[in-house]
Design a protein around this nucleic acid. Structure first.
Length: 575
RNA sequence: GCGCCCAUAGUUCAACGGAUAGAACACCAGCCUUCUAAGCUGGUUAUGGGGGUUCGAUUCCCUCUGGGCGCACCA
């Protein structure tokens, strides 16, 4: 798709190169001035001046005289920059029609060339707590999946659940020891998380407990007996809990993989790699010695013969690339596992696996009280968080809408709560730790999803109140002739320009795997609109003008909707 | 010890190597007999230290300081 602004930039670039008889600049050289008075587009003269061995002003003057496009209202030289002011009517026509025609598709592009990318996230442990740390992973993974799709990739979202390992044995030990005869709570998955915390506490400095846990681990690995049966049933508790959370968050996976199902396959590959000399025995364990690559060693089998995590990773990776013809396989996992993935991918490479593997890392979530740990239980669990948020948002919603029934209040409150959680996780850069403060998450002012949802609802309400025909029902001819000629206000021009930039944001978010780009952009757009709203009457006597303004704000809403969708956040029609 | 990440306003965060370093929160002062006040307007405050590369550095390189994370039987 060739969006208006992109087209303009390309044409201006070609024009500049033609005038100078060179290939010195590319469309990407055209930037945006820091403030609106300077113009809409900007071409820095530094590079050109240097290459042409001329004064920047001279080059700029030459270009200013010779560039002529009907969509450029005027060209001005500001310092060493050549700035373009776009023709308001041309821009408005082109952009608003683009948005109204493409609707939910506006902003998408085909730069991914239909490449197939598997994106693996929400790699959580059964038998442990699901807390806000996991939430960052799941929100980020889901948003990246959506962003890749919008960029023309065939994006396959999958989840890999770690349902096997020492942590399971630990939880089962404490369960048998302390809770066997107690009645089970409703949320059995959450309960297991608490059992795990108890287990860590009780088994510390307890030799007997540690021995018991080892025995339980072996019994589960042998896949028979009472403990194995208990593993099977408790595992389902956690899986059910995850399903509920995914459903509530609106996150869907095409496939869910479980570690326990890939260990055998992994062991086969391990045996093969031992034969090939890629894995070796060391201190009784089977390892990959990667010291030649400065990557230390990676353990596959413990000295007691039990499998570690990378074994199943190996098995799964092999099956994944066999089943789907993947161009790339992305693992969304927090930054603490960077070394692990470097090691793993090196082993993949040594084993001759051809696919392109990538660890997409994000920093972790901590609490104002310090590092979060599901071992110690110093966490905010998902369930506790959503409950607190719901109490708050329901109260706030009730206060504002006394006539709404319980169902409607719950529905809106849920969208606001879930949106708030996701936005908190997505609005900061991936290399930034998030200090999760529940007080901030509950404050719906400023840079929050509630602000965006509120803006959407506000615009929606105005559109509904307007008696003018809906933009979607009118022809392009009508729009050109009548609706758009009236948008002359500078704030309107800035809003239209902002709308025009949205497709670039989608690309940038994709290239940088950065959700904060989208969040920041939407916030700026909403802020600009709210400023405009307070200064300008939309509904009024002049129906042509009203129509034009409705077309404008309808486009803004389309973008808020599209942008929030990239972040996995739903809109509300009223709030 | 080795490796990776971070350091910007009182706090939480922004700034493809580019123009006057932006927001939000908090605090203070205003704005609902006009379309949703979960909103808007105005006000105060910042690049950890030292070098280097460049026309230009918050951004790139080196170094120091201070924090976080990871480095063989956890996942």
């Amino acid at each position: 798709m060739n969006y208006t602004l992109n087209k303009y930039k390309k044409e201006i670039t070609e024009e500049v190169n033609r005038i100078l008889g060179s290939d010195l600049i590319v469309a990407g050289d055209i930037a945006y001035p820091p403030n609106p008075e300077m113009g809409d587009l900007s071409l820095p003269m530094f590079k050109l001046a240097k290459e042409l061995k001329k004064n920047p002003i001279e080059v700029a003057e030459d270009l200013m005289r010779n560039i002529k496009k009907d969509y450029i209202a005027c060209i001005k030289i500001v310092g060493p920059y050549l700035n373009f002011v776009l023709n308001n009517k041309k821009l408005a026509q082109s952009i608003l029609i683009e948005v109204q025609n493409q609707k939910d598709e506006y902003g998408t592009n085909d730069s991914g060339e239909n490449k197939k990318v598997m994106i693996e996230y929400s790699n959580v442990n059964t038998h442990k707590q699901f807390h806000v740390g996991h939430l960052r992973n799941i929100c980020y993974g889901d948003a990246i999946y959506r962003i890749l799709k919008a960029n023309g990739y065939i994006s396959v979202p999958v989840s890999y659940v770690n349902d096997f390992g020492i942590h399971v044995a630990k939880t089962l030990w404490a369960f048998l020891e302390f809770y066997k005869n107690e009645p089970l709570p409703e949320n059995k998955g959450k309960f297991l998380g608490d059992v795990y915390v108890r287990s860590v506490q009780e088994s510390e400095d307890n030799k007997f407990a540690k021995q018991m846990i080892e025995i339980i681990m072996k019994k589960i690995e042998s896949r028979k007996g009472e403990e194995y049966e208990l593993w099977k049933s408790t595992r389902k508790w956690s899986i059910q809990q995850f399903e509920n959370i995914h459903k509530e968050l609106g996150v869907k996976f095409e496939r869910k993989y479980y570690e326990s199902e890939y260990i055998e396959r992994g062991r086969e590959i391990v045996a093969e790699l031992i034969k090939r000399g890629i894995l070796v025995k060391s201190d009784g364990a089977i390892i990959a010695n990667l010291e030649d690559y400065d990557l230390g060693v990676l353990i596959f089998l413990r000295s007691d013969g039990t499998a570690t995590y990378p074994v199943a990773d190996l098995g799964l990776a092999m099956e994944k690339i066999k089943e789907f013809k993947l161009d790339q396989s992305i693992y969304v996992v927090d930054v603490r596992q960077s070394l692990h993935f470097k090691q793993l991918f090196k082993v993949f490479e040594l084993a001759g696996m051809k696919a392109d593997f990538k660890h997409l890392k994000h920093d972790f979530v901590k609490l104002p009280s310090g590092m979060m740990s599901s071992r110690s239980g110093n966490t905010v669990t998902y369930e506790d968080l959503i409950e607190q948020m719901m109490v708050y948002t329901k109260n706030e919603t009730k206060e504002r809408h006394e006539d709404w029934n319980e169902e409607k209040i719950t529905d809106v409150a849920k969208k606001i709560s879930i949106g708030a959680i996701k936005f908190e996780m997505l609005k900061v850069g991936v290399n930034q730790e998030i200090t999760f403060d529940i007080k901030n998450a509950l404050s719906f002012n400023g840079f929050t999803s509630a602000y965006l949802q509120y803006t959407y609802a506000r615009i929606n309400s105005i559109i509904n109140k307007s008696k003018v025909v809906r933009p979607r029902r009118i022809s392009q001819k009508t729009m050109k002739d009548c609706w758009l000629k009236n948008l002359e206000d500078n704030k309107e021009h800035q809003l239209i320009l902002k709308i025009a930039k949205y497709p670039e944001i989608v690309i940038m978010a994709g290239v940088k795997s950065d959700t904060s780009e989208v969040a920041k952009y939407l916030f700026e757009l909403a802020k600009d609109f709210n400023d405009y709203y307070h200064a300008t009457k939309i509904i009024q006597e002049d129906k042509d003008l009203e129509g034009a303004r409705i077309a404008l704000i309808a486009s803004i809403n389309q973008i808020i909707k599209n942008g929030l969708d990239l972040l996995g956040i739903g809109i509300v029609n009223e709030m």
